[in-house]
Design a protein around this nucleic acid. Structure first.
Lengths: 231, 231
DNA sequence: GCAAAAGTGTTGAGATTACACCCATGC
DNA sequence: GCATGGGTGTAATCTCAACACTTTTGC
């Protein structure tokens, strides 16, 4: 990490003649039938005790994407995630300690159990349901709103759902993700037709058994971002 | 990567421990039936003589939008333009002088004659057709491509054309803008029906006279960004 | 056998596309 | 009066949403 105060509370830094640069990442996952995001609890500074998205200063020579990856890897240990630059927030007042331009990212991972490391930078780290977030530090509420909006929009014209799903899944499970994120019900039959028509799913010769008729399992033929008309 | 190399090129700034922040603005206009962008000619440093989008470092305490406005106002004298944050480019190598994170903007103005000020920062300033740009400095070719893509997409689902048009215009003139930017012909009659169905245009009791039958003049009822299904 | 979820098909409304035709003006 | 672009209408096609029915399992 660069400097003594990298990240935590965005504390004091020797005066410079220009704003500094940080990345903040909104990591989404689906868990417990809800859309959740990863938050860290700030240890020191004006926002001590408040929750915020994980982030930190960009080091000299480091790419923005690289910095976002690094931050998330340090916290979660996850390397394989969908990561996309969201928006850059740069108002002078957003960080009381020093004018900090934050390049916000949004990221997606399939749900995983445990593995969160709070490090010594933060007091705590945990998942929170998007529709029931605590009061956030900095302007992170605005970032949260923006990230959710982007996620909802991208579900409609890309195949990024794949990054929220395990290798094998049923059609019902994809649909559940759409419904949770978009926050409204979809017609089972129309959804099925649409998603299959894209040709991105391969049926597996297996089924998932539950309380009733077993459902066919599918897998993605390609796990890379593509623009397709889903909705 | 983090290290020396402060002195050379346009770096007029003492070594710091982190990247610096700049804004670059891609200003589009329609002129001579072509989509054009404003470029400045760089005076000194490793890219001396090359063309680039106008931009500059963000001052401490200044907002990003504010910095972009300021840059464009200094060059063009225009205050009323459509301005939107595009993407942030931050690879370490993009500026050989010092790691510089550039927040790129894209902006739209109706065509205006003259008023460009090169200031003493640049050797020259001029409009260039987007489909015939010179070799650009930094990673500005990537920025140009990204900006064009965004502009083309936004034409389809927003009303931002208004920012490229004067107060009064004919339907043919709007259509011409769409055709030039999207780079393909549209059906005159279908376009007409679609654009009128949006209810954003008000017919004026005037006509524009040319070589043939005069065309009705229209004006926008509202000149602010909105999401609407144009195409 | 029955409840519940999986899987398949159909139909009507509305949007989109591809046109043909008349109208008004300058020359 | 005629060439040229402006203005209006319409039929065929496609897409999308709403819905009914059959199938397969666990209990």
């Amino acid at each position: 990490m660069a400097g003594p105060a990298a990240g935590q509370g965005r504390a004091v830094r020797p005066p410079a003649s220009s704003p500094r640069v940080a990345v903040d990442a909104v990591l989404f996952t689906i868990s417990d039938d809800r859309l959740q995001t990863l938050l860290v609890n700030i240890k020191t500074g004006p926002f001590a005790g408040r929750w915020a998205f994980p982030g930190g200063l960009v080091e000299l020579g480091e790419s923005l994407d690289g910095a976002a990856y690094r931050e998330l890897y340090e916290k979660t240990g996850v390397r394989d995630l969908y990561l996309e630059q969201l928006f850059t927030f740069g108002d002078a007042g957003r960080d009381p300690a020093w004018h900090t331009v934050a390049v916000a990212y949004f990221a997606l991972v399939p749900h995983f159990e445990r593995g969160l490391k709070r490090g010594d930078k933060y007091a705590d780290i945990d998942w929170f349901p998007v529709h029931d977030l605590p009061q956030l530090a900095y302007d992170h509420s605005a970032i949260a709103a923006y990230a959710l909006k982007r996620l909802q929009a991208k579900l409609g014209y890309t195949n990024i759902v794949y990054s929220l799903l395990p290798d094998e899944f049923t059609l019902r499970e994809i649909q559940a993700i759409y419904e949770v994120i978009l926050n409204h019900k979809l017609d089972r039959r129309n959804f099925r037709r649409k998603i299959l028509a894209l040709g991105l799913l391969k049926p597996l010769p297996k089924t998932r058994h539950g309380a009733h008729r077993p459902a066919a399992l599918y897998t993605f033929t390609q796990r890379r971002p593509m623009n397709v008309g889903v909705l």
